[in-house]
Nucleic acid binder design. Structure first.
Lengths: 237, 237
DNA sequence: AGTCTTAGTCAATAGCTCTGACAAAGCCTT
DNA sequence: AAGGCTTTGTCAGAGCTATTGACTAAGACT
């Protein structure tokens, strides 16, 4: 903020402030606008000032990762139905990563082992145990859910973090490529070429999530009995 | 290969060779070992020689992305059962990305619109249509499957592309964190703390894939009748 | 043979991460 | 209150990066 002036006073920079400003920078300028020199200048300090608080850029990225997890998990509470808990965790993760795509793209595949991360792990495992999974099977199902949430949210964030111009041209190219597709070479694409361009991201996500939820429910020793999730299991007459 | 010597002869570099050498470099040295200067030197040429064949690094990355898709799709053929086709596509994608993690991490979220990509899209849509989905719903389900394959394979690749030392310490830290977890603070983690460290990556993937396959089958107007996938749908007596 | 395009080379710019030396700010002790 | 110590902000710089423009020679074409 304060652009030039003299030397900053001693307590001027704190790790918390630096992480906050990093997020602000990443949100407004994208991944390219995020470098330690730029960050220092944005804080009104020397380009190398951040190194007094974080040993390396990677260190800072880890702190950013933890901030994102904290943001995603603020106020998270287990639901009565374990599938509801799973849905909530995955949706929150996605929402946070979509809100900070550049930051998420940088940090989504890092683990921090800080309290926020531990707490969400505990909540997810709680849901899995509630479903009746036990021991190694419970561990496996937890990892499946957690890794899916991370992979999906991270993937969408990575897309959203691309240069907007490039994103635009990518989308446009798909539309063009679909509509002009050769009927004999790609008959199936041709068949739904008009529908392909307009598929909404939220719908895609909900489709995958619904499929996974339904699949988990089938496998669970104690599937939930709530009305919302019961519809999926259709039994033969 | 040829380290120094004089000026290279005229046809010495081709886009194909450059992509091949890029993959080799990425596989052996990781993302950090991949820069255009290094690539040029690895080819026995000038550090800037690659710019005669690719307009930018991004251009080269797109070519690498296409090479990966080609590799993943070599010999791919639709299966009799549409769920089998879906499984095959997702598994191949993952296998290729795991074999080239650094290259995949660079390129997995880019689309190339080249024939290899179009062909796999057509095959997936064919499977979705075979399942009885139509119009906008077919487009939605195709996107769900395709995006999932990309997100998952890309995510695992991104993890695998991290500095191996860092990967190791990450895994070790989790093991330690799990085993030493506070029983009252994180009761669910505590309950399966011994199982958590040993969950195999392949198992996690197969669990998620199985859940999605089962969920898709439930939604499909024409679920497959083959023995392999029938087990999931348990009807009431 | 002579011309033209172009692939490979070279030099240079601007930016990056990160390091080591330096200086001032504020704490702590006496 | 004075002196000393640690810390934190600053500065200069090494070595890397992507990319550009000028130069040069190799080979295709007339």
């Amino acid at each position: 903020m304060t652009t030039s002036g003299r030397r900053l006073r001693r307590g001027s920079l704190t790790p918390d402030m630096i992480v906050t400003e990093s997020l602000r920078l990443l949100d407004s300028e994208g991944s390219d606008g995020f470098s330690l020199p730029k960050l220092g200048r944005a804080l009104g300090a020397d380009p190398t000032a951040v190194y007094r608080h974080f040993a390396s850029k990677d260190d800072l990225v880890l702190a950013i990762a933890d901030r994102l997890i904290e943001e995603a998990m603020a106020g998270l509470a287990p639901q009565p139905c374990w599938l509801g808990t799973v849905e909530q965790v995955v949706r929150r993760m996605r929402a946070t990563y979509l809100a900070h795509p550049a930051a998420a793209a940088l940090s989504s595949y890092r683990t921090t082992q800080r309290p926020a991360e531990m707490r969400i792990v505990d909540i997810l495992i709680g849901a899995v145990l509630q479903a009746g999974f036990e021991g190694a099977k419970a561990a496996l199902v937890y990892r499946a859910i957690g890794d899916f949430a991370l992979a999906w949210a991270g993937g969408e964030a990575a897309l959203g973090a691309l240069d907007p111009a490039l994103q635009q041209s990518d989308r446009a190219a798909w539309t063009r490529a679909y509509l002009a597709v050769d009927r004999t070479g790609y008959p199936h694409i041709w068949q739904i070429r008009d529908e392909l361009a307009g598929v909404p991201d939220d719908g895609i996500f909900e489709t995958v999530l619904a499929a996974i939820i339904a699949g988990l429910r089938l496998q669970a020793p104690r599937p939930c009995g709530c009305a919302e999730h019961a519809t999926a299991t259709v039994a033969a007459p």
